[in-house]
């Protein structure tokens, strides 16, 4: 990407610089650090489940993590469960055992702290697929074939819960392409991969970030959970030149509402997946991961130093 020919813009008296991928390998690796970390995490999650199921990995005599993302047992003692799946079962008017309820609570609280959609960009097995579709879309410069409202996903959540109530079954769990993909990777491949193939084509040819950004009820559920997130992207208004590089790279660009971010000192929307794409790409280092209680203090300090500089 060469922005060299572009006319020089300024903003608030500062030259607007654009992003350049470093030439050195170490520079590139550093620029891709969150991407690499995310892929390692996604792959490791699958590996741990798979190895427990097939190679009987144990720690202290206990299965490492038995089950899958719907529900599992860590070291034979700590239950974990998908809170959205549990919510659907409760809506289907059936009484669940305490173990799975505790598991759902543990997962819910964890994601509420680190950011609901951390599940999306760091754990969900569909994410690498939709990321690939998005990347190919950019390479071939494909236009959207359809316009979808990004709030559709919240209607999907409502629909899923109503259908669970009516049908007496966890409505999304029985058709979820995410659960199908994950389950069949761990417990044996079948036609479940067809769902994720559909998502790939939809994302590639029809709507940019079509599934994850517009339809997926699980992502939407976690977006609601993420409103309370304590790990957030800090936004430093004093250094930002409004170059817009972050918005171009973000899969949920509406969350980088920079005027709102300037007011709050952070990216506030629960739809932010904490993927960290925007952090290394910002030429002014205005974006960084931070803990919510510390954000204001850090922004304050940054404003003071820049005031001293002037």
């Amino acid at each position: 990407m060469n922005h060299g020919q572009e006319a020089q813009r300024t903003w608030n008296g500062r030259t607007v610089r654009l992003y350049h991928l470093p030439n050195t390998l170490s520079g590139k690796l550093w620029a891709w650090r969150y991407l690499i970390l995310r892929r390692v995490t996604q792959f490791s999650v699958l590996l741990l489940f798979f190895a427990t199921a097939h190679w009987a990995w144990v720690v202290a005599g206990q299965p490492l993590i038995s089950g899958n993302l719907s529900a599992s047992s860590l070291l034979g003692v700590i239950p974990l469960a998908d809170p959205f799946a549990v919510l659907q079962i409760l809506f289907s008017r059936h009484l669940l055992a305490t173990e799975v309820l505790i598991g759902a609570a543990i997962v819910l609280v964890s994601y509420a702290l680190v950011g609901g959609r951390v599940f999306c960009s760091w754990v969900c097995p569909v994410n690498p697929v939709t990321d690939l579709a998005g990347w190919l879309r950019n390479r071939f410069d494909l236009a959207n074939a359809l316009h979808l409202n990004r709030n559709l996903r919240y209607y999907m959540v409502a629909l899923v819960l109503v259908l669970s109530l009516v049908a007496g079954l966890a409505a999304f769990e029985w058709v979820s392409p995410i659960a199908m993909l994950h389950r069949e990777i761990i417990f044996g491949i079948g036609m479940g991969l067809i769902g994720v193939a559909g998502i790939f084509l939809f994302d590639l040819m029809v709507v940019r970030h079509g599934w994850c950004g517009h339809l997926c009820p699980l992502g939407a559920f976690y977006a609601l959970v993420g409103k309370a997130a304590q790990v957030r992207i800090r936004f430093d208004e004093t250094t930002c030149t409004r170059c817009g590089e972050c918005i171009r790279v973000c899969p949920e660009p509406q969350v980088l509402n920079l005027n709102q971010a300037a007011r709050l000192g952070r990216v506030a929307s629960g739809e932010c997946t904490n993927c960290g794409r925007c952090v290394p790409i910002c030429p002014e280092d205005s974006l960084s991961f931070d803990l919510r209680p510390l954000i204001n203090r850090h922004n304050q300090r940054s404003a003071e130093t820049s005031a001293r500089r002037i």
Binding site: A53, S66, G67, N68, S70, A71, S72, S73, A81, D82, A85, V86, I89, S92, R93, H94, L96, V100, G168, L169, A170, E173, A179, R183, I186, F187
Partner: peptide
């Protein structure tokens, strides 16, 4: 309704 399809 109850089975969460976890495979445990």
């Amino acid at each position: 309704a109850l089975c969460i399809k976890c495979g445990q």
